[in-house]
């Protein structure tokens, strides 16, 4: 890396603020349709960092479209990761469940990007320690492929075929000041 200047990787904006809002609205409609009578049992559980605000947004949209109140929560997966030894320890984030818990309810895990599936695996382990939901589903804003585990999403905002070298980043107003989905070309 020393010496010659490193070329700045190109970032392409794939979804802007209006697109993200549209995608979230569509996912909310799909949730309402698929959940049907279970809507009262629904809990949207975000995986920090960006899954947490995403879950709250989805819940707000579901409430706006259906009139039903939707519980939300967050579950931190750091202590359940299988790559701590590879990537080192990091600060923990919030784990908050609704007062009624998750037992017997329909839990939808919410994350920003679905990639290897390892985060979801960790989230399922964490969830198992927190209660026994009736069913668990998965909602992601972006599915970029390259799964390393037999996991698929029930609700996908945008399917994004990528190469492994590319980086996909989701920015949300709550955490990053603006809503957008970016793809950055990898170094090699």
């Amino acid at each position: 890396m020393a010496g010659s200047p490193v070329p700045v990787p190109e970032s392409t904006v794939l979804l802007g603020p209006a697109d993200v809002a549209r995608v979230v609205d569509r996912m909310a409609h799909q949730l309402i349709e698929k959940a049907g009578d279970s809507l009262a049992d629904l809990v949207l559980v975000g995986i920090p960092t960006r899954g947490a605000p995403l879950a709250r947004r989805l819940a707000a949209r579901v409430e706006a479209f259906s009139g039903a109140r939707v519980d939300t929560g967050t579950v931190d997966i750091t202590l359940y990761r299988d790559d701590l030894r590879l990537r080192g320890v990091r600060a923990l984030e919030d784990t908050v469940l609704p007062p009624a818990g998750v037992d017997g309810r329909l839990v939808v895990l919410v994350d920003d990007v679905l990639f290897s599936g390892r985060s979801v695996r960790a989230a399922l382990d964490a969830l198992r320690d927190l209660g026994r939901p009736r069913a668990v589903q998965l909602a992601v804003l972006v599915d970029r492929g390259h799964r390393e585990l037999p996991i698929r999403a029930d609700y996908v905002g945008k399917n994004l075929p990528t190469s492994r070298a590319q980086k996909v980043r989701v920015h949300l107003a709550e955490t990053d000041g603006t809503d957008e989905v970016l793809v950055t070309e990898g170094a090699g």
């Binding site: 202590l79 359940y80 600060a91 923990l92 784990t95 908050v96 320690d129």
Partner: peptide
């Protein structure tokens, strides 16, 4: 201290107070 607080929060009210870390 922050990590301890998060661990407390994550384990509060749980039946199984065990983490696989």
């Amino acid at each position: 201290l922050d990590t301890a607080a998060q661990i407390d929060q994550a384990l509060a009210g749980r039946e199984v107070k065990k983490l696989p870390t």
